[in-house]
Nucleic acid binder design. Structure first.
Lengths: 224, 224
DNA sequence: TAAAAATGTAGTTTTATTTCTACTTTTTGT
DNA sequence: ACAAAAAGTAGAAATAAAACTACATTTTTA
C-alpha cells in the first residue's frame, strides 16, 4: 500500500465528531477544543455505530477524533470506510496505546494523525492545527520515520500472512486446538502445524500467547 | 475475606490524588472536581511509583482516585497497601472496564468505590460525596448485590488458586512451555501438567488463551 | 517468461502435553 | 482432634503438537 499524498485542500476545521466510549475523555477533549478553536461544532459519540450514524446524518464533518478501541469493534475498518466514502474528512486517532506499531497501522490505512492519551491534552489542539494545514500529525514519540521508512509495506497481519495463514491464526486466537482446526477446515493435523509454524516464522514469535497477542492487536508486537 | 465496616469517621475530602496515566482523564476529572467541591487540593500522578511517592510526601491525603490499569502494575496490590498503611484514605477506582468482577475484586480488597469511565463524568462528584459520608460507592450498573452477596469469597485468582498454582499460571502467561516451567521450578513435566489441569478445572477454562486472559485480568472471565 | 519465492497440503518422526492414577503433606472444617 | 479436603508431587500410558521433509500450484520478480 502506498501512502497517499496528504497535501489535500486546506479547509478550516469547524465540525468535529468525537468518538470515545469514555465520558471523561470526551469532556476533556471537548474542553481543550473549545479553548483553542473558535466556535466549533462538536458531536460526541460512544460507539462505532453511533459514529456511522452521525457520519450519515451530517454531510459536512471535517474531523473525526477516534479512540482506537471502542465498543463495536475494529476501528481500522472504520478508518478505511471513512476514507473510502468521505475523502476529505480528517481522522485523528486518539489512543491509550503507545506502541508505535499501532500508529503505523492506522496511518497506513488512512488516518491523518495519531496521538496518545498519555500526552498532554494540549497536543490535541496542536494536532488539529497541523491537520488543518493539510499535514499529517504523529506524535514525535513515534518517530515519524518509522512510518515513512521501510518502503510501503502494510504491516497489518492480514497483509503479512496469506489468507489461509490468517484464517488459521484467527482460529488459534479463539483458543482452538490444532485438531479442532484441522477438523473445521478439513485439513490434516500436520497441515495445521505447518501453517502455524510458518505464521510463527513470519511473525518471529515462538509461543501461542504471542500469537494471540499479535492477532488481537493486528500486529507483530514483540512481547518480550 | 470479610468486608470491612465502612462506617468510618466522616471527614471532608479536601486533598485528593488523581492517579491515571492519561492526561485527558486527569484533566476531565480535575475539572469536575473543581466545579463541585470547594477548593480541594488535587495532586496528579501518572504511575504507581509516583503515587507511592506522593503518598509518602503528603500525610493528609483524603482520597485517591485510581485508574485500575496503570503503568507500573498491579493496582490491587496498591489498594491493599494503601489500606494497610493509611486506613483513612479513601480509594475510588476509576476504570475503563465495565465487568462487575473487576469491581467486586477491588472492593473486596479495600477500595471504597468503583466507577466506570464510560459513566457520565458528573458521577465522580457524586461518588466523592458518597464517600465523604462514609459510605461505599459502586455504580448501580454493577448491582451492589453482586458485591455483598455470595458470602465472603475473594474472587481474585491469587486467592482462588494455591500459591504454586498461581505461580505456574503466571509462568504460563508469559508464554513459557510446560518444560520450561518444569526446569525453572525443578519439577517433573507431569507435575506442571497436573497443576495446569487443576488450574483449568478451578477456573473452568479449557485452553491456554483463556488461561492467559484470566491471568491478565486477574479474573475468571468466561471468554466465550 | 523463466527462475525464484510463496502457498497449500501431508506423511513420518520426534517431542511435548494430557490423562489417569497415586501417594504424601498441609490445611480446614466441625 | 480427627476426618475430609486441598495442595504438592510424579510415573506410565495415551494423545496432541511440532519438526522435518516433500511436492504440487500459484504468484512474484528479475
Amino acid at each position: 500500500m502506498v501512502l497517499p499524498n496528504r497535501q489535500s485542500k486546506l479547509k478550516k476545521i469547524t465540525k468535529i465528531i468525537l468518538a470515545d466510549d469514555h465520558d471523561v475523555v470526551k469532556h476533556g477533549v471537548e474542553a481543550i477544543i473549545r479553548q483553542n478553536i473558535s466556535g466549533p461544532i462538536v458531536i460526541k459519540v460512544a460507539s462505532t455505530n453511533e459514529l456511522r450514524n452521525q457520519l450519515l446524518a451530517h454531510k459536512d464533518i471535517d474531523l473525526v477524533i477516534l479512540d482506537i478501541k471502542m465498543p463495536g469493534g475494529n476501528t481500522v475498518d472504520i478508518v478505511k470506510d471513512i476514507k473510502a466514502n468521505h475523502e476529505n474528512i480528517k481522522i485523528l486517532m486518539y489512543s491509550a496505546h503507545d506502541e508505535p506499531q499501532y500508529a503505523v497501522n492506522f496511518i497506513r490505512n488512512g488516518a491523518d494523525g495519531y496521538l496518545s492519551k498519555s500526552q498532554p491534552l494540549e497536543k490535541i489542539a496542536l494536532a488539529i492545527k497541523v491537520l488543518e494545514n493539510g499535514k499529517r500529525f504523529v506524535d514525535e514519540a513515534f518517530d515519524e520515520d518509522l512510518i515513512n521508512r521501510k518502503g510501503e509495506k502494510d504491516l497489518s497481519l492480514s497483509n503479512l500472512l496469506s489468507h489461509r495463514e490468517f484464517q488459521i491464526l484467527s482460529l488459534l486466537a479463539t483458543g482452538k486446538s490444532n485438531i479442532d482446526i484441522s477438523e473445521e477446515l478439513n485439513l490434516q493435523k500436520s497441515t495445521v502445524s505447518t501453517y502455524k509454524k510458518r505464521i510463527m516464522q513470519k511473525l518471529n514469535i515462538d509461543n501461542n500467547i504471542g500469537l494471540v497477542d499479535a492477532y488481537r492487536t493486528d500486529f507483530k508486537i514483540s512481547s518480550n
